[in-house]
Design a protein around this nucleic acid. Sequence first.
DNA 1: TTGTAAGCGTTATCAC
DNA 2: GTGATAACGCTTACAA
Lengths: 349, 349
Amino acid sequence: MAAQTKGPGGKQPTINDVAALAGVSKKTVSRVINRSEFLTDKTRAAVEKAIEQLGFVPNPQARALAFRRNFLIALLHDNPNAQTVLNFQRGVLDAIKDSDLALLVRPVDRGSDKLLDDVRTFLEKQRPIGAMLLPPISENDDLAALCEDLGVRYVRVGSAPLDDAKHCISSNDREVVAEAVRRLIALGHRRIGFVRGPVGFRSAAEREEGFREALAEAGLDLPPAFNAPGNYRYTAGIEAGEALLSLAAPPTAIFCSNDEMAAGVMSVAHSKGIKVPEQLSIIGFDDSPTATHIWPALSTVRWPIHEMGVRAAQTLVPDFLAPGTKVAEGAVLASTFVERQSVAPPATK
Amino acid sequence: MAAQTKGPGGKQPTINDVAALAGVSKKTVSRVINRSEFLTDKTRAAVEKAIEQLGFVPNPQARALAFRRNFLIALLHDNPNAQTVLNFQRGVLDAIKDSDLALLVRPVDRGSDKLLDDVRTFLEKQRPIGAMLLPPISENDDLAALCEDLGVRYVRVGSAPLDDAKHCISSNDREVVAEAVRRLIALGHRRIGFVRGPVGFRSAAEREEGFREALAEAGLDLPPAFNAPGNYRYTAGIEAGEALLSLAAPPTAIFCSNDEMAAGVMSVAHSKGIKVPEQLSIIGFDDSPTATHIWPALSTVRWPIHEMGVRAAQTLVPDFLAPGTKVAEGAVLASTFVERQSVAPPATK
DNA sequence: TTGTAAGCGTTATCAC
DNA sequence: GTGATAACGCTTACAA
């Protein structure tokens, strides 16, 4: 590790320095760098020794130019949940750890009418090998088309399959939400409220479907008054809570399409003196830090987000991973229902 | 914007294509790209027209190679607070938005004994122009020395000046904490507990100093039993809460060195039936999402983290920013105390 | 299995 | 002001 960092001229050593020191041609050094098979063990050893001695590190810009391809992958996101983005990032980085790849991060503004131009400019400038799209922008078909158009590989991460399996990593929101709601029903809840996600989000639609599915199975229905609008923000949870808990006959349980809104509903319950979970059960979605930081701790659905990051990177650039990397199969990863203290049987009248 | 994306041969147009179309040499095109002053307006216009027509985007790898420098800056972090990291990222990206720079993200493991080697390998491989270090790893002097050694510029972000102003962006934790605690004292609190940050963290030391400063001013002291250890994690808040609130004469207010621990203390108060803020005031630090998601909403200190990201990037690469960018001065940014519902006068006996 | 020559797309040098 | 020509550090032909 303590090899000298400077080459002959006081600068970074180049492939030529290595070749000279090892007594071979630069092409041979190149072969060693690129793990060519056609090399004598002896030659390889000599080159590796020289590399070690000089502390040579191949210049990625030069490689990128010669290869006509960059060793960058990009993460595009406009995700309101920081923890999700960061966990995903970690997953990606774990996946590319021993490869030559680096990760470029690009937050975008999904509301901007320049979204497509922004992304186009970014992709044209950086020319990453591929891009990973996190929800909600992963749901934007134009973005996927743009990547296709620019010859940039892409993988979309979502709550349900959005595309071909080779372009998509998803969780099974619908199923797990149904499972969570079945749990409420099994506990005896019959009056169950729902706080929706934002209009037009696939994840919101999936979660609502799962919710309705479980209700339908049990022969329950969702009165319009129990179906509150939301947008994944805390304030929407407050509004939904106010609406649902002011009803003459309020629900005994509320499923919220994400944790933030669940936290809002929880706050309203507290300020109205409604005991959670004794008088009201609440379930969220995401298993964000908020879920465990509020009181009582929130039952929620845990997204396998780190694993999705790993999988997304592996799907995007299977051919660039460190040799010997085990690539997992399957584009749909299972979320899990996590039961905490915010859920209990309904109060008996 | 809708210029054709393909050059003559169905590939990306190069500087040669532009030169040919504009009827000038490639060097002239290069001058236009690099905003050289020595150009006729007419020549410039002709070249720009050709660029527009072809949809030419300079290849960053080729530029990087020729310049012997790439256009990347790196963000190194091992921050437990995802929101902080992401807000900082946004700030950095806002700062470099119209420049040619891109952001590389690198989470590291501060606990690993290979930390230095990891970072060295990363910097040698990617050779970013500079690196930004977020706390707590920004407090590691070896890391700063490594950057210096490798000729990579660096900026350290911290709770207090850690280095020369040209290598450091910091907030004024000590002062703001003192201000927050003064507020508690002004409300009438005399029995004020403290939950510390992790041992060895500069931010923890700064916050504790600020706390003690305010107490000293008012002639109050901090009994050992009121001084609880912590590590910035929720569970530490739980433990501290259990300890402080089980005392025969518990504090009437508790300052926690971050929001997560404050959330823990809040949970303990709830489960013990202690009313916040009527019977117990709580203050946190960070203004993380948790602060507003818990109930009652937490008084806390807001870090100007986005602005610190902007400033860090500007300090790191003032010479690479888009021309005309206004660069703010000053390496110390002010945090602000945000008062919410978790603070009130102590209960009168 | 290894080496030679040419080229990747840009900028630097130094003439004109 | 502008343009030939040689870098930049590496890889891909293709040859040996």
